[in-house]
Write a protein that binds this DNA or RNA. Structure first.
Lengths: 336, 336
DNA sequence: ATGAAAGCGCTAACAC
DNA sequence: GTGTTAGCGCTTTCAT
């Protein structure tokens, strides 16, 4: 067995190995690898060739240590299952890429626990975190110390920055629409929370409904199309006269559409339906979903811009400028 | 202005700053920060408190340099827009998290160029890459040197590992089904490629159709529901008698469903439709989509397991064990 | 065009 | 229980 000495390198080759092999100093290797001036073309090529043969890859740690490295941001989201989150993630990745940041993703949707676990995993790897952290946001900020956390769907509070949504405004838009298309017996389906209380969206909808003199039926479902479908089926058996439905998000609204169709009700004629989020899925279901739409690219851009400001010092953590609020837009399609 | 001296720290605090502030050695700081033994509780707390005040965060580079660091894998995917990719990404992230790996995501869907650009951005940051790299796979491997690349939907070739799909098998399943439900005039909608040739899926479908004596109509569309819808509308005007349609993926199939409904055709009665991928979207559209389904959690797990083997040396790069092939399963719902 | 020295911030190993 | 000494692998001076 006299084959190549290092088919499966036990230890990674270092710059010194390459330097030794080439019979030059390590600086020369650096110059060759990084396309720096002050080196003869022939030397450069010889070194590069040797580096390839040895399977040499500069250590990102050593490099980062000495150079101060590119910023890397952690993205913490509660699962990629609801299309909303990938859409958001996509825009964050896009914006981050433009700045030559890299994004480390952690999805705490599956068994992997809470938002806090995700942040704990991310903490040693990143310079900042953007995420849907819910009530864990402040503890996440504590975990990151001075490194900024930008929370979504939550006011900044003790975190460096926050982007929240104007739910009362959105609720008003939706409820007005439902009224306008003639709905009289309106229900709102909220997502379940750990504490059993209403979500921020739910609270806003309930508040506006009361202002409008609407006798709102509120019920809950897990955040999935399947669960939502069952919840609506069950609701329908109790409230047969339901003729207007506002739903926590579009994915759940899609499930609701299924339930309504299954019960023989026409949408929007027998019951109007409005979702929330504005994800592309809404255009693929039948009937197409009227929804409170968020421009997810804007949300992603806003988050990254805010983080950029925080990182550069242009925006002060916890200041009013760091606590943004975005609005939904009512996109009218077929379901209401 | 005699406020706190370091509201916006110009330079990050280092371990030495904390040590100096606490009047201890840096080793003691290390012990305090990392919950190591051999330190008095009081000292530990005092140091931690000081660290927090100074906003000290251990440099991940220095730490990585000295400790050999956790592996981090790059995930390169062509956009998060098609729900297929987030579903895949989600399972990769989940599996990676179980191994305490972290995943750096790069989405080259938007303006950010080709798969190769993504790999170039990832290269200095990661120990390996998993991705839908298409024809760029081998060049990506060259870019990474000895670090393994696992390509998806592509045989391994010159990359360390590959996971491909048995399209002839899948095509057979679908075409048999279409024949079984009585389709006689069958079309296949492929995705467009840069070279204008058929995709691997398209080639397999065409091959099997020819074996089966089917006179297959092949047409193309961009990979989006919208484009697909238009492509089908246009096809319908040319081939009014179409009664069976197999589609490149589920997202495009959803668009096809819209076109069919818009033309007044019933699915599956007037025209049966079969998609490919098995994403959850298929259950949300009307009628629910019959599809060639891939268990995406399996695909993700397989990719991560393979990478694990490659990284540990248990699997040899380029060997037969590193070139896996998975099969689709026909999930019969309503559309065919 | 190339090399030598210094040091980035941290932890492992061994003192004391 | 705490401090000291060595590096980890690289790039930045500053020589030569």
């Amino acid at each position: 067995m006299t084959s190549t000495p290092r088919n499966r390198p036990a230890k990674r080759a270092t710059i010194l190995d390459v330097a030794a092999a080439a019979g030059v100093s390590r600086q020369t290797v650096t110059r060759a690898m990084n396309e720096m001036p002050g080196i003869r073309q022939a030397t450069r090529e010889r070194v590069q060739e040797l580096a390839r043969e040895l399977g040499y890859t500069p250590s990102r740690f050593a490099k980062g240590l000495v150079q101060g490295a590119h910023t890397s941001v952690g993205l913490a989201i509660p699962g990629l299952t609801n299309p909303y989150f990938p859409a958001f993630a996509s825009s964050v990745v896009e914006m981050a890429t433009q700045r030559a940041w890299n994004v480390v993703m952690d999805d705490f949707g599956h068994g992997s626990g809470s938002a806090l676990d995700a942040v704990a995993r991310l903490a040693p790897q990143v310079d900042a975190v953007i995420g849907y952290l819910g009530p864990d946001a402040e503890e996440a900020q504590a975990m990151l110390g001075r490194r900024p956390v930008v929370v979504l769907d939550e006011p900044a509070g003790l975190t460096a920055g926050g982007i929240s949504f104007d739910y009362p405004y959105a609720a008003r838009l939706a409820l007005d629409r439902l009224l306008a298309v003639g709905s009289g017996r309106i229900a709102y389906m909220d997502s379940v929370t750990e504490e059993g209380s209403l979500t921020a969206r739910g609270a806003a909808v309930a508040g506006v409904a009361s202002d409008l003199g609407i006798d709102l039926t509120v019920f809950r479902s897990e955040d999935s199309a399947h669960a939502s479908r069952e919840a609506v089926e069950s609701l329908l058996s109790r409230h047969a006269g339901l003729d207007g439905l506002l739903v926590f998000n579009d994915l759940m609204a899609a499930g609701a559409l299924k339930a309504l169709a299954g019960s023989g009700r026409g949408v929007p004629d027998d019951c109007a339906v409005i979702g929330m989020d504005g994800i592309p899925l809404g255009e693929l279901v039948t009937p197409e979903l009227t929804t409170l739409s968020l421009n997810l690219r804007d949300v992603g851009r806003t988050a990254v811009d805010l983080l950029d400001g925080l990182l550069s010092g242009a925006v002060v953590a916890g200041s009013a400028e760091a606590d943004l609020r975005l609005r939904h837009e009512l996109v009218i399609r077929q379901s209401a």
